[in-house]
């Protein structure tokens, strides 16, 4: 089983790299490429969300707003402080990471429920501040962010950002993979499975949760900042919306939060569906209903995501190499233990 999952990971990586490299040349027109960038943006954000959601099991509905904050910070640093685009992007991500420290301090001291409440509160506060503080943020009129490559044509601009986003996605996935294999990751998973026991066994749960929350906020802000540089126009209503945060949760959950590529798969499925919905139904309220129903179905019937569901299917179809389904009696267990003890001696 271990071997199978390792093969699946490398296979997934090869497939993803091929897709990322080939898509710009396959995409028939700039619109498809730009839709692809939107999906890729979701993949980055959802993977960043999965640092917290996947490892610790703490579900944040506020990551959409952290991305928005990254976007606004990048834009404001370019417009007001005159920083160069990519320096501003990096500074903004560090800034959001710093903001995440006090937020995490308030949200992570206690268990799950308060964390969710804080994550929702963050969205509402940021929306309030960025809408009302119009003299600094541009308010409801929005904020125009100058393009980083002013002399590129529109399709070339899309193409450049496709590769930038690909690099960021690779970075985020690599970081997630490294955490997944580390002792640190093991501690985080212990928090997910049973926080009390983890704490009793000496895992510094609060510090671990805090670190992973800041890392997650950092990557989320990078994704949001890159979006600001690409799209060039920020509106507080869209940047600080609970709905966009819930899309990230839906994607990660649908793909499978315990899986490296889960959020990417989810982002492709949900991102394409969202884009399709926008094209065929326009701006009606039905996309809200569709999002709600889909999220409800996933939570009720597929809380582990499609990838694990597929893995279970593969396992069922493969020839059975596991030993037996018969349970051992206490007597057999004792005999075996005695035999083992005898071997050792």
């Amino acid at each position: 089983m271990r071997n199978v999952s390792r093969w699946a990971t490398s296979g997934g990586a090869v497939l993803l790299v091929a897709a990322l490299l080939l898509f710009p040349s396959v995409a028939p027109n700039p619109y498809v490429l730009s839709a692809g960038i939107v999906v890729l943006n979701y993949a980055v954000l959802s993977t960043s969300w999965n640092f917290v959601g996947g490892f610790t099991g703490y579900i944040s509905l506020g990551h959409g707003a952290l991305a928005g904050l990254g976007g606004y910070a990048t834009g404001l640093l370019v417009v007001k402080a005159g920083l160069s685009s990519f320096l501003a992007l990096f500074a903004a991500a560090v800034l959001v990471g710093l903001v995440a420290v006090p937020v995490g301090f308030a949200a992570l001291r206690v268990r799950g429920a308060s964390f969710v409440i804080v994550s929702i509160a963050i969205v509402l506060i940021l929306l309030l501040v960025f809408q009302s503080w119009a003299s600094f943020t541009g308010g409801s009129r929005g904020l125009v962010v100058p393009r980083p490559f002013p002399d590129l044509s529109r399709p070339e601009h899309h193409r450049a950002f496709w590769y930038l986003y690909s690099g960021l996605l690779a970075l985020a996935l690599l970081a997630w993979w490294l955490v997944d294999r580390s002792r640190f990751g093991l501690g985080l998973k212990a928090v997910r499975e049973d926080e009390d026991k983890a704490e009793a066994l000496g895992t510094p749960t609060f510090a671990y949760k805090m670190i992973v929350f800041v890392v997650s906020a950092f990557f989320t802000a990078l994704g949001g900042g890159l979006y600001a540089l690409w799209f060039g126009d920020l509106d507080p209503v869209f940047q600080f919306s609970i709905l966009s945060g819930s899309y990230l949760v839906l994607m990660a959950l649908l793909g499978g939060v315990r899986n490296l590529f889960g959020p990417v798969v989810g982002a492709v499925v949900v991102g394409v569906a969202l884009e399709y919905f926008k094209v065929s139904f326009g701006d009606t309220q039905l996309h809200l209903v569709a999002t709600g129903v889909l999220l409800g179905l996933v939570v009720m019937f597929m809380p582990d995501g499609v990838l694990p569901a597929l893995a279970a299917l593969v396992k069922r179809l493969r020839p059975d190499d596991s030993a037996t389904i018969r349970e051992e009696t206490a007597e057999e267990l004792r005999d075996r233990r005695l035999a083992n003890a005898g071997d050792k001696r």
Binding site: G57, Y58, I59, L61, R111, G112, A113, V116, I242, L243, S246, V249, L253, T284, Q285, L286, H287, L288, V289, A290, T291, G292, V293, L295, G296, V299, M300, P303
Partner: peptide, 20 residues
């Protein structure tokens, strides 16, 4: 605790959409 948040969130969004 976590899943019920998502489920009730989904219900909230559905109600909002249907009202709209």
């Amino acid at each position: 605790t976590m899943m019920s948040v998502l489920l009730t969130f989904a219900i909230a969004v559905t109600i909002e959409g249907l009202l709209g």
